[in-house]
Design a protein around this nucleic acid. Structure first.
Length: 825
RNA sequence: GCCCAGGUGGUGGAAUUGGUAGACACGCAAGAUUCAGGUUCUUGUGCUCGCAAGGGUGUGCUGGUUCGAGUCCAGUCCUGGGCACCA
């Protein structure tokens, strides 16, 4: 093969990447004349290098983007950087550098890598969340939320390393110890900022039932996370003093069986209710619980423990005097932080009662059975028949639930309520590399928002990184010291920064008008593009990121910035990239380096393999030999086109009426493939089967012989279509071949071809003949053949007769165009 | 424990509506080209019986529905994921 005929991916790819960049092929603006399509892949954290997960994610997205573009859509396909976060700070400590330097270097390198992939991004819209031009608007939003009461401060517990004097994220706590110094981690209570996502719990839940474009399992995970439960709040009057303990329960049908009360150790009444003689023991218990880290405390094998406060309350249904305990398994954040304990019908209460020898009263029994409290080995948690419950005796517990709730409301002893598992979103991070929370603390005025005119609060550059002594910001006097915007007296800045999930909760909105100077988003432009038509990313973000982004969308809607209820119409969650049976990771040593891959095979091969090896939502098993196979395929495509180049250049115009049988058959294969590829991409996102279909077509074309003038025309059409069909998957080689086939417009700018329906119609059908459901023969018949003729042919078939001779034909079933099944016996 | 996916050749996977199971690719085997290796090309390749024609068998397991089941139903086992003291 001569040198110019050789497939040289690296040369070709650089050439066309430059071409698309020069021509600004993928730059878009709002165009009311075209249908819009907003395609988005989750933006990467600039960790240093892209990994195979990115290659896969962005290859999938690029097929959709290029395909939709060829289909006439105005495609918005942006890319950016989720650039704040802890790794930058850790790297700074380790390398004695600055998080900004580290981050921007990584971005430059990774941008280059993405460009080498040939992805169809509108790079003019690129953004980095650590840029003040981005995070300044987030500060504005924070203040708008603050004004609406959607951002607020409250006491909350954090993991605290007393030796490093710093807050630790959950993943920095290893077996209860600090990851850096190995000292014991404590729980420390700090004032922290929260977003009131719970205000939107119901709407977030309701919409999960109106999102057909999302995978059901993601919706289920979000519903579980939101965790709505309906029940009652019931007041239990305190004995011998004013006041009451309010509980939340979903099992008000067991109220008559409540024999004691369990409070969270952090409950406000915990110490108040403790009698002097119990005080020492109770305090010791509270102390012990506080020292236990939250992960351990909520582990399933954690032993139930408690302590008696010395006080009693009254069961509002029975008048029974109930001892009040503190229990380590009661969570202060959920419900009211207090639980009415029904040991006969709740397993936790049962174990607790057995341990502390508390009374058991059965109030629900299985149909036709009498439970003996003394003999019970576990709580009975199923529905049943009510007993020992006064006027409700004999009723089914299911319906009594509603009646007891009504009765409590009438008596003024309780009311029906809804509770959510979802908690407000704590956004304070005692970190440097994040968006500063724009608040000033004044001794006279309290928390004061930074005035609009003083925004943004710019993250100062000149800080020291030691990893100790808390956030670097908190030690930077020049940052902290500020005059109160209200009274002018000396005040102090908030030194906490925001959780990086905040930035990723609205970046998709900023992409619509990334240059807008007047606010977070330019409403007109954002209204044109939103919602995101297709969002693609890893399943690991099923809950947090995707829920926060939904929350922010609703908040920004209510603040008047945007018009949509939901950010992402369709969601595709792609599977992981696996090698040797495990997720790629440095520790396992099974990492494939995208740079090396592209250098050796080119981006087209890397893209093709990650699309061909598995459907997008499944895990992908990386296999070097499979990559070789894809490279071979591209070489065969290259060779095929060049082999026929001179023949098709001189080809006559295609005349479909003048084709030989052989030519028609070849053309049928081409148009059938085009039909399948179109449908596989557009309707199913099954890129692996689309590619397989093109491979099959290539096998057919390789065997073709050019015998007549028209066969040159058929081959020319075949090669044009073959190249066009492959364009979304392997854009560089196809642009090159397209040009060599004599076309002058860029392939990216051509319309996706339409298949000729007439050419896909079979002239003969293959009918499968079964006897008693077993395949025995095949018949080739004319398309329009009638049922009786097919049946007769099937029965007369020699291979069929072998199995029907001497048998009685009981029934003959004909599925038109498919098969005949003869029932004999 | 609860919920959700999934289980198909030596491997990744295909079978879109209940109608030819294993497309396509990898691997393997034989052959051609080559001094040789690599590349490229041709042929074969679920298992099994058979020289062959052909037969039997086969989609985790056990049943069921149906003329016909990888696909539907019931049960069961295994794998992966999510949730889990949430009152």
């Amino acid at each position: 093969m001569s040198a110019e005929l050789k497939y040289t991916p690296n040369e070709i790819e650089a050439k066309w990447q430059q071409f698309w960049a020069d021509k600004k092929t993928f730059t878009v603006t709002e165009d009311p004349a075209k249908p819009k399509y907003y395609l988005l892949e989750m933006f990467p954290y600039p960790s240093g290098r892209i990994h195979m997960g990115h290659v896969r994610n962005y290859s999938i997205g690029d097929v959709v983007g290029r395909f939709k573009r060829m289909r006439g859509f105005n495609v918005l396909h942006p890319m950016g950087w989720d650039a704040f976060g802890m790794p930058a700070e850790n790297a700074a400590i380790k390398n004695n550098s600055h998080p900004a330097a580290w981050t921007y270097e990584n971005i430059a390198y990774m941008r280059d890598q993405l460009k080498q992939m040939g992805l169809s991004y509108d790079w003019d819209r690129e953004l980095a969340t650590c840029d003040v031009s981005y995070y300044r608007w987030e500060q504005k939003l924070f203040l708008e939320m603050y004004q609406k009461g959607l951002a607020y401060k409250k006491q909350s517990f954090v993991n605290w390393c007393p030796s490093c004097e710093t807050v630790l994220a959950n993943e920095q706590v290893e077996d209860g110890a600090c990851w850096r110094c190995d000292n014991e981690v404590q729980q420390k209570e700090l004032e922290q900022w929260f977003f009131r996502i719970t205000d939107y719990a119901q709407e977030l839940l309701d919409f999960t039932h109106k999102m057909p474009g999302w995978p059901e399992r993601v919706l289920v995970m979000q519903r579980n996370w939101i965790g709505r439960s309906t029940g009652c709040e019931i007041d239990f009057a305190l004995e011998g003093r004013e006041g009451a303990i309010r509980v939340f329960t979903t099992r008000q049908d067991t109220l008559f069986g409540a024999t004691f009360m369990s409070l969270a150790p952090e409950h406000p009444l915990a110490l108040e209710l403790t009698t002097p003689e119990r005080r020492a023991e109770v305090e010791a218990f509270i102390d012990k619980v506080k020292k236990t880290d939250r992960i351990k405390r909520t582990a399933d094998d954690f032993e139930k423990e408690g302590v008696f406060t010395g006080s009693y309350c009254v069961n509002p249904a029975t008048g029974r005097s109930m001892p009040v305990f503190l229990a380590n398994f009661v969570l202060v954040e959920y419900g009211t932080g207090a639980v009415m304990a029904v040991p006969t019908h709740d397993q936790r209460d049962f174990e607790f009662a057995k341990k502390y020898d508390l009374p058991l009263v059965v109030v629900i029994q299985p149909q036709g059975e009498a439970l003996d409290p003394a003999a019970m080995a576990a709580a009975y948690t199923e529905p049943g028949v009510m007993v020992n419950s006064g006027r409700f005796d004999g009723k089914p517990s299911d319906s009594a639930k509603e009646e007891i709730a009504d009765w409590l409301e009438q008596e003024g002893k309780g009311k029906k309520t809804v509770n959510f598992r979802l908690r407000d979103w704590g956004v304070s991070r005692q970190r440097y590399w994040g968006n500063p929370i724009p608040i000033i603390y004044c001794d006279c005025c309290g928390a004061v928002p930074v005035p609009d005119t003083d925004l943004p609060v710019v993250l100062p550059h000149d800080v020291a990184f030691t990893g100790e002594g808390g956030s670097p910001l908190a030690r930077l006097e020049s940052f902290i010291t500020v005059d109160c915007p209200q009274c002018g007296k000396p005040a102090r800045r908030e030194t906490d920064t925001m959780d990086t999930f905040v930035e990723s909760s609205w970046y998709f909105l900023r992409y619509c008008s990334p240059d807008f100077e007047g606010g977070m988003v330019d409403k007109a432009r954002t209204d044109y593009w939103m919602s995101v038509d297709q969002y693609i990313g890893g399943i690991e973000h099923a809950v947090l990121h995707l829920l926060y982004a939904r929350f922010f969308t609703k908040v920004m809607r209510d603040l008047g910035h945007i018009s949509v209820d939901e950010p992402f119409t369709n969601l595709l969650t792609q599977g992981m990239v696996i090698k040797d049976g495990a997720k790629m990771s440095k520790s396992k040593g099974n990492v494939v380096d995208p740079d090396a891959l592209i250098k050796k095979y080119g981006a087209d091969t890397a893209r093709l393999f990650s699309l061909f090896a598995a459907p997008p939502e499944k895990d992908l098993d990386w296999n070097e030999q499979g990559v070789d196979g894809c490279y071979r395929f591209l070489n065969r495509v290259w060779k095929l086109v060049h082999e026929y180049l001179s023949a098709v250049q001189g080809a006559v115009a295609l005349d479909v009426r003048a084709l030989t049988d052989e030519e028609r058959t070849l053309r049928r294969a081409v148009h059938k493939t085009l039909k399948k590829v179109t449908e596989d991409i557009d309707e199913r996102f099954h890129f692996n089967t689309a590619i397989a279909a093109v491979m099959e077509l290539l096998n057919v074309l390789q065997g073709a012989r050019l015998a007549s003038p028209q066969s040159g025309a058929v081959m020319k059409e075949a090669l044009d279509l073959l190249v066009q069909m492959l364009a979304p998957f392997v854009p560089h080689i196809t642009e090159e071949l397209w040009q060599q086939l004599g076309h002058t417009t860029s392939l990216a700018d051509t319309a996706w071809p339409a298949y000729d329906p007439a050419a896909t119609v079979d002239e003969e059908l293959l009918i499968v003949v079964q006897v008693n459901g077993k395949l025995r023969s095949r018949l080739s018949v004319a398309v329009g053949i009638d049922e009786e003729t097919v049946k007769a042919q099937a029965l007369a078939d020699d291979k069929v007769k072998v199995f029907t001779d001497g048998q009685q034909i009981r029934k003959v079933i004909y599925v038109p165009g498919k098969l005949v099944n003869i029932v004999a016996g």
